[in-house]
């Protein structure tokens, strides 16, 4: 019997958390953010004059009997803010020691899914590599977590990452704005800044969770190396020494800083994790500190 994606104790600790976002989404509710828009709902919001075409069921007949004017009762709408979790399943997620980077990514996705499910959020788990791949919609409580965990456990990494096509497909597939949690190493054939900017411009609130293996950030090797891109197969022969290693790490950190600045600039948030970080530490640490979940 395979090990569960997340253990029970950790799930119990997650139950007190809620996913928070900073943007307001018109007509949508979710989490602890109350909607300012009227619509179909249970909570009374206001009255207005009846206009042609309004729903007769919303007319306040008591007021008509008393005032002989048609007033329409308005209710606070309660559509849920979609929480979409994009998980990178490209080949680059398999570098490092074993599959610890990919495991970390899907465990983190599982933890966030569970937090959302407990708060009755509508969760969309969406994988991607060259394009969008399989997805799973779930919502309605903690008891719906089992399919989500099974879905995540069954994921197989592979393929190249093409952020442009992924962003384009995502914008078309999910026109409704919402919070977009992107779990990836942000390494692919093309750059990811412009696709991310595009998604933010579409109205999605970005929560970029950058996952890297230790060797992605600080390669431990030295000497004469022939490195091969695991996604494209391109090779590079080089002499790698301590100076080069330091320069490499600086470049990597600069890239991560660029992602962070992009996220903040677009009203989103960014967090970077080494794959050696435990998911529990990530959720109750950095994620709580930036008030993504708390």
């Amino acid at each position: 019997m395979p090990a569960p994606l997340l253990d029970r104790e950790f799930l119990e600790r997650l139950e007190r958390l809620t996913i928070h976002w900073t943007k307001s989404f018109a007509g949508l509710v979710g989490g602890h953010n109350t909607s300012r828009f009227a619509g179909a709902g249970q909570e009374f919001l206001d009255h207005r004059h009846f206009h042609h075409g309004d729903d007769f069921r919303a007319i306040n007949w008591r007021a008509y009997m008393r005032l002989e004017k048609l007033f329409l009762k308005m209710f606070q709408i309660e559509p849920r803010v979609p929480v979409r979790i994009l998980i990178d399943t490209s080949s680059s997620m398999t570098t490092g020691a074993g599959t610890e980077k990919f495991d970390f990514a899907r465990k983190l996705a599982g933890a966030l899914s569970y937090v959302g499910l407990v708060r009755l959020e509508a969760i969309q788990l969406q994988t991607f590599a060259e394009t969008l791949k399989e997805s799973l919609s779930c919502g309605g409580g903690r008891h719906r977590f089992a399919p989500a965990a099974e879905f995540l456990s069954g994921l197989k990494p592979g393929g190249n990452t093409r952020f442009f096509s992924v962003a384009r497909e995502f914008a078309q597939a999910y026109p409704q704005r919402g919070i977009l949690i992107l779990i990836s190493d942000f390494l692919g054939e093309d750059e990811c800044e412009r696709p991310l900017r595009y998604l933010a411009d579409c109205g999605h609130e970005l929560l970029l969770l950058h996952v890297w293996a230790e060797e992605d950030r600080t390669p431990p090797w030295s000497g004469e190396l022939e490195v091969e891109d695991i996604e494209t197969g391109a090779t590079l022969q080089l002499s790698f020494e301590e100076d080069a290693r330091r320069l490499y790490t600086e470049r990597f950190d600069a890239y991560a800083r660029g992602l962070r600045e992009l996220a903040i600039h677009k009203g989103g948030r960014y967090l970077g994790f080494s794959s050696r970080t435990s998911v529990e530490e990530a959720v109750f640490g950095p994620l709580s500190q930036i008030q993504a979940v708390y």
Partner: peptide, 17 residues
């Protein structure tokens, strides 16, 4: 020369010749 498979060549190209 040691053969390695890495996630990307982006930073390698930037840091070495």
């Amino acid at each position: 020369r040691r053969k390695l498979r890495v996630a990307t060549l982006r930073f390698w190209q930037d840091s070495t010749v």
